[in-house]
Design a protein around this nucleic acid. Structure first.
Length: 114
DNA sequence: GTGGTGACGTATA
DNA sequence: GTATACGCCACCA
């Protein structure tokens, strides 16, 4: 099967993010590790940068860094869009940071073992 | 084919 | 505990 998806890596990241349940969030490193590319944690975020142009849409707003900071909020067009979406999902966000990050944290490996 | 960059993470000072 | 430096690896020009 002709691998038309050269974004094998990207697609995988999208697949994980799309499995994130509503009201939950995860970290780039966790996703990267779930993919087996823990070393390319940066690539996870890089992939998300293109998440706004792929289909189906990827809830990138549910993906934050290790500190729970909405580092990529700027990728949503508005610096408050990401926080707004999270708040809409039930995730409290203050100062561009996820509140109780560890409580709403979702483990991507959980989807793999589904 | 090479170089530069990056929505991170970890290590060290 | 805070601040700074480096590394990782895949994508883009």
């Amino acid at each position: 099967m002709v691998a038309m998806k050269s974004d094998n890596f990207f697609e995988r990241v999208y697949g994980i993010v799309r499995q994130i349940p509503e009201g939950c969030v995860t970290s780039y490193g966790a996703i990267a590790r779930a993919l087996g590319t823990a070393g390319s944690s940066r690539m996870v975020g890089y992939a998300m940068r293109g998440a706004g142009g792929v289909y189906p849409p990827v809830p990138a707003h549910r993906v934050v860094n290790r500190a729970g900071l909405l580092t990529g909020k700027r990728a949503f067009g508005s610096p408050t869009m990401m926080a707004q979406l999270l708040a809409n999902e039930g995730v409290a966000v203050v100062d561009d940071k996820v509140v109780d990050f560890e409580q709403v944290f979702w483990d991507p490996q959980d989807a793999l073992g589904d």
